[in-house]
Design a binder for these strands. Sequence first.
DNA 1: TCCCAGGTGGGTC
DNA 2: GACCCACATGGG
Length: 272
Amino acid sequence: MEEYRIKKSSVNLHAIAESGQCFRMHEHTDGDKIWFDVFSADKFIQIFDEGDTYLLKCSVTDLKYWIYYFDLDADYDYYYAVIDASRDDFLKTAADYGRGMRILNQYYWEAIISFIISQNNNIPRIQKIIEALCERFGSEIEYEGKIVGYSFPSRREMKDVSMDQLQGLGLGYRDKYIWSACHAKDDELKPDLDTLLKLNGVGPKVANCILLYGFHHMYAYPVDTWVKRIEAEVYHGRFNKCAYRGFEGFIQQLMFYYYRHCNDSPTKSLSK
DNA sequence: TCCCAGGTGGGTC
DNA sequence: GACCCACATGGG
């Protein structure tokens, strides 16, 4: 088992977990203890909140994977500097609220499947469907001698899935889209907007999510119901993302996280 | 019961 | 291009 500490001043796991970019990162509390269970691809990590630091605990061979996953070697100071220097009070507030946000480096296949599932769906149900999918097609993950969950099935593990096997996961009408993605050839899954848009069930929003979260293209800018609301209600149709060229996706992430958390009804649970 | 959810495909005009 | 609407499923 490997242990590794990071400063909370540079990373905000709560914001990341609640920002809708991944669906297998769960925050837990037990008394005054706070920790995160995170699954990605076939890996698992526990991260403990210890005041001003996070303590990462994972298997020795996985530490590099997780440092890359959380984008810990990247420098986000420039992005915040541009925001702080702007005259955009809404974005500055969003940036303060979500300071320590990062764009994760996720397994591209997990992003493709997850964001096809996400269309016209809510986050708790997306999480539930993905868990069911992992349990059906993935394999058990062992951690400290216990089975803690299931891997996200690899593209190889899903290449022969049938429509019958997709029944009972709660996919609804999206089952045929998942089937198509599973049977796609390599050159149909290239990290390119026009290529991804040719996939059945992938439109502009999902394609941009795949580019941003699955391929780390920071310029990708997913426009969902929340971003539409922000552009209409806050900016009255005059938001100019060109001011943030090259990291539009990060800007979108801060705005989404802040606005959704400040405007969603408290009776609706935001996770689980 | 109706309404909504990190939208998209397939029709119209 | 710009609008419509149906689409499965489950929670409030």
